[in-house]
Every structure is written in C-alpha cells, then in structure tokens.
Write a protein that binds this DNA or RNA. Structure first.
Lengths: 208, 208
DNA sequence: TAATTACTGCAACGATCGGTGTAATCCGGT
DNA sequence: ACCGGATTACACCGATCGTTGCAGTAATTA
C-alpha cells in the first residue's frame, strides 16, 4: 500500500461528489435532490456514489460536516483578522460586518442555503449529527467571537456580562436582513447601511 | 342558492384539510409531506383535497396564506397590547418579549416550522407568493412594531433613525436563541434570561 | 320526490427515486 | 505484462407519489 486511505474510492471523485451534493442539497433540499442529479452535477456515475457513501443520508451528513468545517474556518479567520487588534471599535466592527456579509455572498454562499435546509429538516436529522453541526459550526464561530468580545470587555471597551450571548447578538445585528429580505445582501449600499445600523445598535442601543 | 361560496366544497372539510396540511408541511416539508398523509391527518379522503384545491402547490400556498394571516393577527395584537401604553419601557419590552416567545411556543408553533420550510424552499416558490407572504406576515408585524417604536421616539423615550430597522433588531434580539438553540425556548428561566438580555442590548448596547 | 352537490373508497397510470447486481473498462502499482 | 481496485453504463426492483376516473352514498336544496 502506498498511501493510507481513510475512506474508500479516489479522493478527487469523492470531492466532486461532495461538492455537487452540496450544490443540489442546498438548492433543492434533502428529499428533492436526487442521487442521479447529484451524480450528473459531480460528473460521476450514480454507482460511484455508493462506492464512497453508504446511502443518501450518509452523503448528506458528510456534506454538512465538510461544508460546515470550511465555512467555520473562514468565519473564525475573519473574526480574528478584524478583532485581533482593535483601534477604533466601531469602524473595526463595521469592517468585520462587511467581511461577514462578504462570506455570506461568496463562493461559500451555498453553505448558508444548506443551513436553511438543516433548520427546516431538523426533525429528520439524527440528534447527534445536529449537535455536532451546531458545535463545530455556528457554535465554534460564536465562541471565537465571544472570546474577542471578552477581551474588549477586559480592556474596558465594552460592557459584557455574557460574552456568548453578546456574540450571538452581534452576529444577528450584523446580518439582520439576511433572515427577511435577502435581496438586500447583493446591494453594496444596502449592505453598508445594514452593517452600520447593526453595529450602532450593538454599541449604543436605542435608549433615549 | 342560499349561501354565496367563495370556494368549492364544505367549509369544515376545507378547514380540516388546511389544518392538517399545515401540521405536515411544517414538520416534513413540501416534498416529503404526501397528500395521502395530509388526507389521513385531516380525516378526509384523498380525493376530497382535489375538490377544494387544484393541486399540491395550490394547497401549499393556501396553507401559507392562511397560517400567516392568523399568526400576524396574533403578533400585531400582542405588540399593540404591550406597547399601546408604555409606563416603564424596559419592563414593558420584556413583557412583550415574553409574550412573543409565548406565541412561538403556543398552538401556533407549527407556523414557525412552516416559515423555516419556506426559507429553505424559497427557490421553488413563485416569487409573487413569496412577496405576498413577506408583506402580509413578518413585514406587517414589523411595520406595526416600527410604528410603536416611532411613537416612543417621538415621546423622547427612544432614539430611532430608522423605525423599520429598529423593529427588525428588536425582533431578532428578543428571540435570539430561536435561530440556534431552540431547546432554550421551552425552559422558563432560559426564556426570561434571553428576553431580558435582548431588551437590555436593544436599549443600552454593549459600549463601555 | 327529484336533482344537485359533496364526500368516499378503490383502482389505476405514469413518473420518480433509492438502491442493487452485473459485466465491462480504465488505471496505477508490482 | 499482470493484477486489483475503482469507475462506468445499464438494467432492474420495490416503493412512493401526484393525479385522475369511476361508482356508490349521504346530505342539502328545489
């Protein structure tokens, strides 16, 4: 044996399958996305999919784990890049928010459609898999952001009782319109307005 | 003719169908929910569904419109009840938040699972239907809440540049954990903590 | 009473889909 | 040149599903 294999089949085929499956699962959902369509999207035979994965559910969970790890890596790096050294907290948070929205509309965009599928399909996903996704995906990003906010609190820049909750609030406020009018994400002016308003709300609130 | 009919069939059967379809569409999604299962849930013959609706898509859109109107009515009434006369803004907002979460976990809960299905299925829903849903559902509630916040701003209680955006922020902060750890919604202590933290963030922000 | 309407149960059709078996082919390693 | 695993195309099975047709029945109306 020349190379140790963690999984069956050729790695490039496996990658093509996972990528194609992500595109179709994200757009069509678990039930509507057929394995024939996924095979065609991946440029692979239907039969080959079963050489790499036990069944459709196995492929789905693999796609979730793979895409989640990639996006969480990017998100964590984005948080560290913008909150590693903070000079002006308001403008730095705005920059973080703009970078955040940049990820939402990047080539990683299908992942967030997949997240919507997960949220809709939660009752039909094994609880253990849901737990793993929550912990390695949004949970991990939130912990990273919470740590940065705690640092800023120790330096006296912020007043944060519960860093994890504050991180959740900031994530929501930065991409507020992502949950209602998603078309706003593609207009640069709207993006800036949404982020600045979110950051201002996060910092100052609406009292008085 | 003794009574004018806006739609075919007997009204009670129609109501049973729409209610059963809501339960199954919300839990299983559009594709997975079968018309046989919906008919069984409604205590109605499969064939009767086609007496009231053209096809599955027609039923789905009807369910969306029906459930959306009901929930929006409840939400608007909740907003008016808690923000009609405001004495202590912080405690009144907390009460609104608790009532808000009460709706999320009430017998109207299936609606919000349906909303998750809509968000996942958006690419497969006619844009006109999506627009109508957004306008008569969350949009309507947000406008109502924005009007109340604008009142409070005029009275000098709040500082609000964009009432619609502020309303969106408040809605997000009040039910922050609804988008990640939905199990927190069923623990009274967690609910109170989530709402109070959200309201405090909305009013005061995290600066200093 | 007669007629209209709605509901029901059942069968059936065509299509789609997940999954499997099989035989042929391709390709890297020895 | 040989071998073994990987890939492919194709056919197939059983199940599910949306939808329709049809005949019978109950209820409401003229």
């Amino acid at each position: 044996m020349t190379e140790k294999r963690r999984t069956a089949g050729q790695p490039d085929k496996r990658r093509a399958i996972v990528d194609g499956a992500l595109a179709l699962f994200a757009r069509d959902g678990y039930t509507r996305a057929s394995l024939d369509a996924i095979a065609a999207e991946a440029g692979v035979s239907n039969r080959t999919i079963y050489n790499h994965f036990a069944d459709k559910a196995d492929l789905f969970q693999t796609v979730i784990q793979d895409s989640t790890r990639r996006v969480a890596d990017t998100m964590v790096a984005t948080v560290d890049r913008h909150l590693g050294k903070v000079t002006d907290i308001e403008s730095d948070l705005v920059d973080l928010g703009l970078a955040w929205l940049g990820v939402l509309t990047s080539e990683l965009a299908p992942h967030f459609a997949l997240v919507r599928q997960i949220n809709a399909e939660a009752d039909h996903i094994p609880p253990a898999a849901l737990k793993t996704w929550l912990d390695t995906g949004p949970g991990r990003v939130r912990r990273e952001l919470a740590g940065r906010l705690a640092e800023l609190a120790e330096r006296g820049e912020l007043r944060v009782d519960d860093p994890a909750r504050a991180a959740g609030h900031l994530m929501l406020l930065i991409s507020a319109d992502n949950l209602t009018d998603r078309t706003a994400l593609h207009d640069p002016g709207e993006r800036r307005a949404m982020v600045t308003a979110g950051v201002r709300a996060f910092l100052h609130g609406y009292r008085r």
